[in-house]
């Protein structure tokens, strides 16, 4: 197990380096640091202000290798970028100048409060509905279910939010439409509607996906054996098939992991939840490059960690998979 873990983590290193290279290319090569400085400081900034902005961030150094005589070859933008990200120095926001590590730390809690419940509610709904559809498979109800699921996933997420906010919150005047409060029961009041909407948004696509997984499972030999043995339909599905289907579901579920921490761009912004999604939304609106590129790195890091965790869960859940 230990050697497997080490190998798995080592395998992630080149991928992480690739991600760093991509963020570097995007943030320094595609758009030159000078253009970025101009975009942040405004078109009227003096050349001196631009030069100071660049040298403060080390953006005035050579791009990949320092070929200047008398200076170390690694004293360049790229190597500083790698070392900084590797040591979790995410830099400062282009707009507010705040330390991004602090910004992300602060935003993670509200995001998690929103996404974790939404994720579990959504997962439970999707798994139950998918199993029920498999239970009544090849009936009119199943066909209708598939159509409804496809219809639900054809609605863009912002329409769910706009509609949920306008109709439910304004008409019934029950849920607060905007704001956040980090104290006890108050939080719950603010979170109920966003959590419900977020769970609903993903349910269509998930039901469709999980139904396919369960349908594949039901064609297996062990299901026929259990049927021949006289196991009741319901028990067969909700115990035997669910247990085995879960193994395939783990991989699908992990794709959600970065979203859990990074929050939801749209939901958080609409409901005024001060999470990472909202931070990112504002950063996009204000052209805050530093924040956006740091989010890319953080999101990828979380995804890679998630993949490693999946592989471990996979091995633990299914003894047939050898850790080699």
């Amino acid at each position: 197990m230990f050697s497997y873990l080490v190998r798995r983590v080592l395998y992630a290193v080149p991928i992480l380096l690739g991600v760093i290279l991509i963020t570097f290319v995007l943030s320094f090569v595609v758009q030159s640091p000078e253009a970025r400085a101009r975009a942040v400081l405004g078109q009227r900034a003096t050349p001196q202000a631009v030069a100071t902005w660049l040298s403060n961030r080390g953006f005035d150094k050579p791009r990949f290798f320092n070929t200047q005589p008398g200076e170390a070859w690694h004293d360049s933008q790229f190597f500083h970028h790698v070392v900084k990200l590797a040591t979790f120095d995410l830099g400062v926001s282009d707009v507010s100048g705040r330390d991004l590590k602090e910004v992300f730390k602060q935003g993670a809690v509200p995001s998690l409060l929103l996404t974790v419940p939404a994720f579990f509610v959504g997962l439970l709904m999707a798994v139950c509905l998918a199993l029920y559809q498999v239970f009544v498979r090849d009936s009119l109800l199943d066909t209708a279910g598939v159509l409804i699921a496809v219809a639900l996933m054809s609605i863009p997420s912002m329409v769910y939010i706009v509609f949920g906010q306008a109709v439910l919150a304004l008409l019934f005047n029950y849920f607060p439409v905007f704001g956040f409060d980090m104290a006890g029961f108050g939080t719950l009041r603010f979170l109920l509607l966003p959590v419900a909407l977020m769970a609903l948004m993903g349910v269509g696509g998930d039901v469709r996906l999980y139904r396919a997984v369960f349908l594949e499972e039901i064609a297996q030999d062990y299901v026929r054996t259990a049927q021949a043995k006289g196991v009741p339909q319901a028990r067969l599905l909700f115990v035997h098939v669910l247990k085995n289907g879960m193994i395939s579901l783990i991989t699908l579920v992990v794709a959600h992991l970065p979203h859990l921490v990074m929050g939801s761009l749209l939901v958080e912004n609409f409901f005024g939840i001060p999470g990472l999604g909202n931070t990112l939304f504002l950063a996009i609106q204000q052209s805050d490059y530093a924040t956006v590129f740091a989010s890319v790195y953080l999101g990828s890091l979380l995804y890679i960690v998630g993949l490693i965790l999946t592989d471990i869960c996979y091995a633990l859940a299914d003894p047939r998979i050898r850790l080699s």
């Binding site: 991928i15 991600v19 991509i22 979203h259 990828s300 995804y303």
Partner: peptide, 23 residues
Amino acid sequence: SYVYSTLASIPEILLLVSILMAL
């Protein structure tokens, strides 16, 4: 596989937004 695993490990919306902000 290395190239696409690297691209796939960046959350899609973040990659899209950062490419569009750069271009």
